[in-house]
Design a protein around this nucleic acid. Structure first.
Ligand code: FES
Ligand code: FES
Lengths: 131, 131
DNA sequence: GTGATATGATATCAAAAAAGTATCATTATT
DNA sequence: AATAATGATACTTTTTTGATATCATATCAC
């Protein structure tokens, strides 16, 4: 079972590096210190900036830093950047599975299950995954 | 996020059908009543038999029936047939991610997370997903 | 025992998702 | 204006999932 995907994992590591680098680093710095494919890392950092976890700055002496204190970032928050959640009650299978979509109760139960997993993730701070 | 895969879903439905069919059915019967690709369904039933959820019988008047009462079958039990669990403490990524496998604590935390999800699954009876 | 009928085992193929790459545009510093 | 960083985004490769096909084996009716 794959709990999180590699993007989430890489993000976790990159954030850890930034924290240890005084809260600021650029792609080159992170890349030269960790075994993450550079263009992939770049895209991940961009997504973190997009998600307002990091703040990016272009040009010389640019790079990434935390937009807000990292202590409160949860796994849920990080994970949903890279592993999109279904809208509640939506069928996780590209239809055609249930005979009747309208009367199907399973899709609700499955999305409730995802909900519960996310609740679990809400209680996990990424800083605790670093230790 | 994909909580269960299609195989698990199909298995769930097939078992539901068998239950409603008096606890016994063969592939043709199930196939003609549900929208599951026949050879795929066949393989899934074989796996259920292998996992001792169903008992199979070959030849004329053969088919599948529950080996034990279905009431106690959990989602955990069903899911792990189709979505193999990592051995505890094992890295979910094909190595090369952590600088030092031996000192990595993350892999343990991730496998603990899977553990917790499974605990959740242990408390879900498949019969409750049918209702 | 033989033929029909069901599953067992397993190899292969196709589609989708995840992982990884490449490129050009834009902005900040000097 | 030149340089050095990220932004945006399209593309390719690899892996996983979903689906198929085939032959072997067991059971039953006759
Ligand atoms: S409609 Fe998708 S599970 Fe029922
Ligand atoms: S070795 Fe895989 S997560 Fe650390």
């Amino acid at each position: 079972m794959r709990v999180i995907k590699k993007e989430t994992d890489y993000a976790l590591r990159a954030l850890f590096f930034i924290k240890n680098n005084g809260g600021h680093a650029d792609v080159s710095k992170i890349y030269s210190n960790m075994d993450i494919p550079r263009p992939f890392l770049r895209r991940i950092l961009q997504q973190l900036a997009h998600a307002k976890i990091l703040l990016s700055k272009k040009g010389k002496h640019g790079g990434f830093k935390f937009l807000r204190p990292f202590e409160k970032i949860t796994l849920a928050r990080l994970n949903e950047i890279f592993d999109k959640r279904l809208p509640p009650g939506e069928c996780p299978f590209k239809n055609k599975v249930c005979i009747n979509y309208k009367t199907c109760v399973l899709k609700g139960k499955l999305s409730k299950l995802e909900e519960e997993i996310y609740k679990m993730f809400e209680n996990i701070l990424i800083k605790d995954l670093w230790m």
